[in-house]
C-alpha cells in the first residue's frame, strides 16, 4: 500500500483578485521507504503542494484526492492531518514569543500521543530526548526555554524543524525548501538529520530549488513540477541534468 497517494490534485491560492489556480492535476505516489524530490522553477506550485497537503489556510482544493495510508487528507483540519502522521517542515518557521520551545514540543507530543491512544511521555524522559536531539543538531539546549523560534537565525529555525521531525517521527515528512538560506555546514547537519529520520516505514517529500541538497539526501525519485503538474520524473540523474540544462527544455 502506498504511503501517500495524490491523484489529479487541483488547488488555488486565495488572492485579493479571487482564487488563482496553481496546481492543475498533480499526481504523485510515495511508497514507504522512499524519498521524492520535487524540483521546479519559481511559481510552479512546489510550496503550494506542501501547503495544500498540510491544510494551510488560504488555499482551496478544486479537485482530486490526497490519501495518507487509508485516510483521505483534504477534508481534515491541519491538526488532524498531523495526528495521522503528516509533518510539514516550514520554509519560514514562525516565531512565537511567550510560548517556550519545550512547552510547544510537549504540547505537540502529548497531542500526538493522545490521538494515537499512546501513553504521553513522562516529562523527564521527554526532556532528555529533546536535549539529545537538540545537541545532535548543534542546537544549544538553552533554546528550549526560549520562545518558539524567537530570535533564532535562519539556520537555527531550519534545524529546529528537523529536530521536531526527529522527535515527532511522522509517517510522511514534507520538507518545504528546508535548504534555503543554509550555509554548507548547516546544510550537512540538516541533511544528516533527515537521513537519520529515513526508514523503510516512512517517506519524505523534499521540495527544493537546488540540486545541492540532493548530494546529501539522495532521493529515490526526482520530479519536475511545472505549471501545476509533474512534467518529468526520473532518478537522481534527472536532478543533475536539470542543474546542467535548467528547466527550459522541459517546460
Amino acid at each position: 500500500m502506498s504511503l501517500l497517494s495524490v491523484s489529479n490534485l487541483h488547488a488555488s491560492v486565495v488572492t485579493d483578485e479571487g482564487p488563482q489556480p496553481i496546481l492543475k492535476g498533480l499526481t504523485l505516489q510515495v511508497n514507504p521507504g522512499e524519498v521524492h524530490a520535487i524540483m521546479g522553477p519559481n511559481g510552479s506550485g512546489k510550496s503550494t503542494l506542501a501547503n495544500v497537503l498540510s491544510g494551510r489556510p488560504g488555499y482551496t482544493v478544486d479537485g482530486g484526492t490526497a490519501v495518507l495510508g487509508n485516510d483521505p487528507l483534504l477534508e481534515l483540519e491541519p491538526f488532524e492531518r498531523a495526528q495521522l502522521g503528516l509533518f510539514l517542515a516550514f520554509q519560514y518557521p514562525v516565531e512565537i514569543p511567550g510560548v517556550s520551545n519545550m512547552e510547544f514540543l510537549k504540547a505537540s507530543m502529548d497531542s500526538l500521543a493522545r490521538a494515537r491512544g499512546e501513553e504521553q511521555p513522562n516529562t523527564a524522559t521527554f526532556m532528555k530526548r529533546v536535549r539529545e536531539l537538540a545537541s545532535s543538531l548543534d542546537l544549544d539546549p538553552a533554546f528550549l526555554k526560549r520562545g518558539v523560534n524567537e530570535g533564532f537565525s535562519g539556520g537555527e529555525k531550519k534545524r529546529n524543524e528537523i529536530m521536531q521531525l526527529l522527535l515527532l517521527d511522522p509517517k510522511l515528512a514534507v520538507l518545504d525548501e528546508t535548504d534555503s538560506g543554509l550555509d554548507i555546514d548547516a546544510l550537512q547537519t540538516v541533511a544528516e538529520g533527515v537521513n537519520r529520520y529515513r526508514s523503510s516505514d516512512n517517506g519524505v517529500i523534499l521540495i527544493t530549488h537546488y540540486q545541492r541538497l540532493l548530494d546529501y539526501i539522495v532521493p529515490d525519485f526526482v520530479h519536475v513540477l511545472s505549471n501545476g503538474s509533474i512534467v518529468q520524473s526520473g532518478d537522481k540523474s534527472l536532478a543533475l541534468e536539470l542543474e546542467a540544462k535548467g528547466y527550459a527544455w522541459l517546460t
Binding site: 498540510s54 491544510g55 494551510r56 489556510p57 483540519e77 491541519p78 491538526f79 492531518r81 498531523a82 495526528q83 509533518f87 510539514l88 516550514f90 518557521p93 514562525v94 512565537i96 510560548v99 512547552e103 510547544f104 504540547a107 505537540s108 497531542s111 500526538l112 490521538a115 518558539v148 521536531q164 515527532l168
Partner: peptide
C-alpha cells in the same frame, strides 16, 4: 502561529490557549 501549532498536531483550542 495557530497554523504552526496545529501542523504539529495541537488542537485549535489548545493552540489558542497556548
Amino acid at each position: 502561529a495557530l497554523f504552526y501549532l496545529m501542523s504539529r498536531g495541537v488542537s485549535p483550542d489548545t493552540a489558542e490557549a497556548l
